[in-house]
Amino acid sequence: MTDNRMAIRQVELEVLRYNPETDQEPKLQKFTVPCVNEWCVLDALNYLKDNLDPTLAYRWSCHMQVCGSCGMMINGEPKLACKAMLRDYSGVIRVEPLSHFPIERDLVAVADDFMAKLKRVKPYLIPGEKRTLADGEYKQTPAQLERYKKYAMCINCMLCYAACPEYGLTPKFIGPGAISLAHRYNQDSRDGGRDERQEEIATSEGVWECTFVGACSDVCPKHVDPASALQQVKVASTVDWYLEHFMSWVKK
């Protein structure tokens, strides 16, 4: 059996370029990049920047699918460039900045909106009970961990926003990633911050903007399944509403 993993292959990249100082609008630029078969798209971009065009701007850091900074559209699909393997593509590979976000420069998307939304949903533990160091650590059973574990895998890569047509059409939508993180903390046995988060996410800019297209879950590189988090927030908020309006004697 021949091992062609290290073989060199000429890969044609079509990269969307935008220079805010000189360009009126972005345009595609073609490059032919000599690539090792086992490379990912990020490796190809790194080669391109080091050897062909040092002005190319894009974000990356870890090269191992944990930092969440290399998200981009690859052949029209939101992907982590460090997870998209060249061996899975043939022909020209089109690389563009994440959809639905403004373009800062070349492949760099403006993340300000996502960052602001993340902050709004308070994605951190808000302790449900006052504890001191002397009380020792929190204890959590495997069952309690299972309730939120999947949603704790989020790396804030924003791929789900690039996939979500609702976010594209209505940018004020808080969106899949941030709401999933809110849900992650709401589901945590140590947390007591649900009421505060509900004010942000159980609203028309929150889960009620979601129409359950499900694209977010298709593209999430960490299998967070944001669509499931949002539907569960809808169900729980609906139950809240009924309890409040028809059964106010039932204590929540």
């Binding site: 805010p20 972005p26 403004p102 800062e104 403006v110 047509p165 059409l169 297209v213 694209a215 298709d218």
Partner: peptide, 26 residues
């Protein structure tokens, strides 16, 4: 150097033709 982000507008009536998964949703 000032920022001048470029906004790509999503077509309001034809957006679901952009991807088969949007068509399945429709």
């Amino acid at each position: 150097m000032s920022r001048r982000p470029y906004v790509r507008v999503v077509p309001r009536t034809t957006w679901f033709f952009r991807h088969p998964r949007y068509m399945r949703y429709m």
